[in-house]
Design a binder for these strands. Structure first.
Lengths: 208, 208
DNA sequence: ACCGTCTTTGAATCGCGGGTCAACTCCGGC
DNA sequence: GCCGGAGTTGACCCGCGATTCAAAGACGGT
């Protein structure tokens, strides 16, 4: 009985992962159940055995993918001892296509799909807000941590405010990078965001 | 013959406008030919008499709507005598939902739809880039104009660079405002963008 | 008033893809 | 080895919506 539960959860995960991949490749609007089934090496009927509808599956897949990403980032942050390093790293991770090992293009592409749906689907709107807050929270935590360790000055604005602004800059630039590789390159984005972060938070960047 | 051409062009415009409205209301993915026809008070068949396919129509509608908006803004800019006023005004116009008379929410909602499609449709990607450049150009022009009139200092960065950064900040914040009316309000966005503009360009804002 | 062409209609076609379902398989417990 | 239920399949149903098309209408030119 326990094993059955486990196996069921595994299967669900597998489908969610496959769904995320397919959405990334084909876009939310062009993702068919058939595609997801194929990527799992499974029949289309099975997909609807595990999820009550295509729509629910897609929604869950989007948040699931974001969760995965968030957890990876959170784990990395915990490992880094200094706030500056954390800031540098989280910026690296935010730039689409900067690090070849994570294909962050994918993360951002999914993110844009979430935005579109959030415009008209209240459930997604709520989810999106939660995911976004969590992300901004991570930035704010780094700032607070740095103030605690003495790496960052403590006389600046509220950490949450700063994080919100920094997050906005990252979003705006990420779109440019994601959609247009000529004018705004990953390297350039990294530079600009680093600059913005140091100015907002008020510290000196580690030279690259 | 001439009149016929004119009438045909009018009909096309009418359809494009209707399409933009429907896309805004229902989202690109859920827009049906039937909806557009209904909004024009016309039969579905006619839509495909004027456009070779739904897809072409939608693409054209997106850029058409953006053109309209751009032209409105450009006209306004020309009327304002000082660069500071222009900057203040273009910021107002960039904040979704700030001005009730223009429902800028709509502009931004369409913009997000363009992004999603641009991820996978090379034609749209190219169009989007052109539209975006035009927009950033407007910002850069204001900066250059202000330097010419002596309103802005001339020792700062390249005007195009500054415009690019300012544009990114606007994009990032606009998404937040568009999707989430609790944390990031229009008024707050306006404040932040104004602040960013004055710091980037290096002038004093007119107090609000 | 007549003709030919451009518009417009609305019904019909057609393919696609989500969801259903009855049958089959597999596996774990007895 | 046998039973029962969970897991899996793939064929089928079904509605939706893009596109086509033949027929009807409007309109300008003669």
């Amino acid at each position: 009985m326990v094993k059955a539960r486990q196996r069921q959860r595994d299967r669900r995960q597998e489908i969610l992962d496959a769904a995320a991949v397919v959405i990334t490749e084909r876009g939310l609007a062009d993702t068919r159940i058939q595609d997801i089934a194929q990527r799992c090496g499974v029949s289309p009927g099975l997909i609807l055995y595990y999820f009550e509808s295509k729509d629910r599956l897609l929604v869950e897949a989007l948040t699931h993918a974001n969760d995965q990403f968030y957890l990876r980032v959170a784990r990395e942050m915990r490992r880094l001892p200094s706030a500056k390093e954390r800031m540098t790293r989280i910026i690296e991770l935010s730039v689409p296509g900067l690090l070849p090992e994570y294909s962050l293009l994918d993360e951002w592409a999914l993110w844009v799909e979430i935005w579109v749906r959030a415009l008209r689907d209240p459930q997604i709107a709520k989810e999106r807000e939660a995911l976004d807050r969590r992300w901004v929270q991570s930035l704010a935590d780094i700032i607070r941590y740095g103030r605690q360790t003495g790496e960052f000055p403590t006389d600046g604005h509220d950490a949450d405010d700063l994080a919100l602004q920094l997050g906005a800059v990252i979003d705006g630039l990420a779109i440019q990078v994601l959609l247009n590789d000529t004018v705004m390159t990953p390297a350039r984005m990294q530079e600009i965001v680093t600059d913005a972060a140091t100015r907002l938070v008020g510290y000196r960047a580690a030279s690259l």
